[in-house]
């Protein structure tokens, strides 16, 4: 306490010369509260700057460099845009990676997300055994994607896998570059469906029952009630779902890394960043350039999201 006083006094003093009225409005916060607020703002800010902005800016700066990650900063060669030129022109995995990330996003939205919402709506109707189904669908969500990749390997293995045994086929599910992306997406979807289902189910439980009753009295059918009454009420949840899907598809990494380190049909940007930066092969500059490209793509989605949210708040 005794130490807090001088600080508080100093703060008080700072505010001294201001016009009285304005000061009067702010007076509601005691000096101690103000100190708490300042700390609560400062600590996260330091974390955000230290853990997000400095590394991000560092990556942008390094993306113009050729550096093996060994030795001081004086060993860094500045090579301008060459990394970006090389990525676009002569780095074969890059364009497939962009394509795969887009496929990932579209697939997650059209497939597992829709399915998850459908399941949530069905389970919300309090069927018999609905608890059991909830648990069953949610189970995969507690598993890490890396583990899921391994579990599905038991199905997908060409020679020893269940799937080929049952179907009597000899498909190389994880190895054939025309198929493995879809195989991995199905495994991802297995988890994603339960995730979306849970979030949506929680949202549906929060919808005021009287709205449905009112809709029913007005003679709206199930489908109409859902689309014209429930869905609009669920807007915040819908937004969260969209954001989650976008984030999931951009940060897709674990499962692909487990399957084959993001090569041969499973190129995605996050895996390319890793394989260039990690280990002895540290092409720090090249990897950073890839990371910056990834950052640029995410920024587009983040901007859209923020605009929507802010518009929402304004209205």
């Amino acid at each position: 306490m005794s130490q807090a006083q001088p600080v508080a006094a100093a703060v008080e003093k700072d505010h001294g010369p201001r016009p009285k009225r304005k000061r009067g409005e702010k007076q509601r916060l005691s000096s101690r509260d103000r100190a708490v607020v300042v700390t609560m703002v400062a600590i996260p800010t330091i974390f955000v700057i230290g853990l997000v902005w400095i590394p991000a800016i560092g990556s942008v700066i390094l993306s113009f460099a050729n550096w093996g990650g060994i030795g001081g900063f004086d060993t860094i060669q500045w090579i301008g845009l060459k990394n970006y030129e090389d990525i676009v022109n002569i780095y074969p995995p890059f364009w497939p990676a962009i394509r795969h990330n887009i496929i990932w996003l579209v697939f997650l939205i059209l497939g597992p997300t829709m399915l998850g919402i459908l399941l949530a709506v069905i389970l919300d109707r309090e069927l018999r055994g609905s608890r059991f189904y909830q648990t069953a669908f949610f189970m995969p969500v507690v598993l890490s994607l890396a583990l899921i990749g391994f579990i599905w390997q038991l199905f997908y293995s060409q020679q020893q896998g269940l799937l080929n045994d049952v179907l009597g086929t000899n498909v190389d599910w994880y190895g054939d570059p025309d198929i493995n992306l879809w195989a991995v997406l199905v495994a991802t979807g297995w988890r994603h469906t339960g995730y979306i289902m849970l979030i949506y189910l929680a949202g549906l439980k929060g919808v005021d029952g009287t709205l449905r009753e009112a809709a029913a009295i007005d003679g709206a059918g199930e489908v109409k009630t859902f689309f014209q009454v429930v869905l609009p009420v669920m807007r915040p949840i819908n937004l969260i779902v969209v954001v989650i899907v976008v984030i999931e598809s951009l940060r897709a990494f674990d499962i692909v890394w487990v399957v084959n380190q993001g090569r041969n049909g499973l190129e995605i940007i996050a895996a390319l960043v890793t394989s260039n930066v990690v280990g002895e092969a540290s092409r720090i500059g090249f990897g950073s350039a890839l990371a910056v490209i990834m950052m640029a793509i995410s920024s587009v989605f983040i901007t859209i999201y923020l605009r929507v949210v802010m518009k929402d708040e304004q209205s």
């Binding site: 590394p55 990556s59 390094l62 674990d254 890793t274 990690v278 720090i284």
Partner: peptide, 18 residues
């Protein structure tokens, strides 16, 4: 792989973040 990933996080912290 699972170990690799852990390794990745370490080097990413050091390498990627300069």
């Amino acid at each position: 792989m699972s170990l690799s990933r852990r390794g990745f996080l370490r080097s990413a912290a050091v390498g990627g973040a300069l």
